[in-house]
């Protein structure tokens, strides 16, 4: 069974179907399956994951100034559904143009 490490995915360059750079892979999104496993449903791309790791999750309500900074730091984040990946090489290529990617997984995949 072929395997891959999350650390190996993180940091790979991401380009859309027209070759525009979308940053790098910052995170891997999984979904709990009926049998109790975790299935990959997509990737988070962007320039940096740090603000995302801080500001992510909706439970954070930082003071206004900090919130503005965190939001700006996360402005580049995009969600890439697994079935929109055309090629998973050293560079990850998407099968759709960059502007069609949502900001959160729920924007495009209400499943």
């Amino acid at each position: 069974m072929p395997t891959i490490l999350v650390s190996d995915l993180l940091g790979r360059e991401v380009r859309d179907s027209r070759g525009t750079a979308l940053g790098r892979v910052q995170d891997v999104v999984v979904r709990r399956t009926a049998d109790g496993g975790y299935e990959v449903v997509g990737l988070v791309t962007g320039r940096s994951s740090v603000a995302g790791r801080w500001g992510y999750g909706g439970s954070l309500a930082p003071p206004p100034l900090l919130r503005a900074v965190l939001r700006r730091l996360r402005a580049h984040e995009r969600y890439l559904r697994w079935d929109h990946i055309a090629e998973l090489g050293e560079t990850v290529r998407t099968s759709v143009p960059g502007e069609r990617l949502g900001r959160r997984w729920s924007d495009v995949d209400p499943a």
């Binding site: 999750g57 439970s59 954070l60 930082p62 900090l66």
Partner: peptide, 22 residues
């Protein structure tokens, strides 16, 4: 510490008050 002190996931109702945050 400032960021986590504002996260309800960790602190629930004990997150920073508005005065503390200012």
């Amino acid at each position: 510490i400032l960021i986590v002190a504002n996260d309800r996931d960790y602190l629930g109702e004990h997150v920073n008050s508005r005065v503390t945050n200012a």
